[in-house]
């Protein structure tokens, strides 16, 4: 049986990949992709802890399902914001969207 720590290490690396994308990408859509990766890493943790730490309850899987739902909400609103920014500013590069910078 694969130990729990292996799942947690995998999730940590996926989280770091998502964080790298969020920190270094200029494109708003690519930043959203990084956020999706980070949410998936959290979900791996939740489901792995469900199996290894509390197999009697399905609480971890419930949590993962709620996170998936909220990730879908976040993607929908985030992409709508990207479209609105593109329509009014002609760019979706987040370092150029600085009209409110003093």
């Amino acid at each position: 049986m694969v130990p729990l720590a292996d799942y947690l290490v995998l999730s940590a690396v996926v989280f770091a990949l998502g964080l790298y994308a969020v920190l270094t990408r200029r494109n708003g859509v690519a930043i959203l992709m990084g956020i999706e990766l980070m949410l998936n890493a959290a979900n791996i943790n939740l489901v792995a802890f469900n199996k290894y730490a509390a197999p009697g309850a399905v609480q971890g899987q419930i949590f993962a399902l709620i996170v998936i739902t909220l990730a879908a909400c976040e993607a929908a609103v985030g992409l709508a914001l990207v479209l609105a920014a593109y329509r009014s500013l002609e760019t979706i590069h987040v370092d150029e969207i600085n009209v409110m910078r003093w």
Partner: peptide, 8 residues
């Protein structure tokens, strides 16, 4: 990491 009781 401890193992929890019960089965899925």
């Amino acid at each position: 990491w401890g193992r929890g009781a019960g089965t899925l």
